[in-house]
Write a protein that binds this DNA or RNA. Structure first.
Lengths: 153, 153
DNA sequence: ATTGCTGCAAAACGTTTGCACCTAT
DNA sequence: ATAGGTGCAAACGTTTTGCAGCAAT
């Protein structure tokens, strides 16, 4: 068991929802929490396959949704019609800037944004759930585009 | 020609990019600008087909991208892995709140958001291009969910 | 004459589903 | 015992592509 604390969170969530506790689900959880950066469900499936896991694609897809429900992962979409996931575990919330030239994703935290979604939801007569804020931009220094690594500021 | 001003914008864009001026492209443009609210490429294709247009699916998909490039349309993604489009023509920029219960999309304008993307891009060493800001929330009064119509505030 | 665009059908892509078997409860 | 999960392959919905013929330049 690679992530004992997260396992406990997942276990409690599963019991609460009358979902069963299976080894496959914890295998997916471990792989997802170990993944550096943002990943598609299929990326994770391929990675696990390469590591000789026998968990099926269907189980990977379904388990990732469960991990989002219990907030161990967040679900992202950077405008490419692919669902991406990212570990939430022991990380602060943040938003993303995507370079339209090279696809690099830069994570950032901005205090001004944090309160807005809740205020706006309330103003419009809604109860806030979640939000997504993505900026699309170009590197000022285009040669940075070559060294394409995720960063947080 | 239903949209003479927009046609002119599109025509100038096409010439500048060495794209050809074809009747099919203007047919797609007219249908897209007439569409109320947000639509997927296939929605527009089906609508045009029902109106006895002979424009092909491939042409609809490709032309919508051209209309985004010349800023007559915006491209949206509300987290469902479907690209949606929306007319920009004679409209002010705005963001979206999506009801997670009924799927209703509410458009809103918030002054605090407007300047942030540019400031943040600059701070991180990027040149701002575009942004997307979506709020996911639930109707406070759930019966509103039945009367499901797009609105702007 | 040349290059780019069109329609069509097929392929691609990420994701979901149906089903028979299996396993946690 | 039973409800629910699993793996597999097939189906799905959206989008892209290859290609032969056509049309704008």
């Amino acid at each position: 068991m690679k992530h004992p604390q997260a396992s406990e969170i997942f276990r409690i969530f599963l019991k609460g929802e009358k979902n069963r506790i299976t080894p496959e689900r914890f295998e997916v959880m471990d792989a997802a929490l170990d993944y550096e950066g943002h990943f598609g469900a299929d990326d994770l499936y391929i990675l696990m396959k390469n590591n000789h896991s026998r968990v099926s694609r269907a189980t990977v897809y379904k388990t990732l949704e469960l991990l989002v429900q219990c907030d161990l992962l967040s679900k992202r979409n950077f405008g490419e019609n692919i669902t991406r996931y990212e570990s939430n575990y022991k990380r602060q919330s943040h938003d993303h800037l995507i370079c339209v030239d090279c696809g690099r994703i830069v994570e950032f935290v901005d205090q001004h944004i944090k309160k807005l979604p809740e205020q706006i939801s309330d103003r419009l007569g809604f109860v806030f759930e979640s939000y997504s804020f993505n900026i699309f931009a170009r590197c000022k220094n285009p040669k940075n585009c070559k060294y394409f690594k995720e960063q947080t500021f």
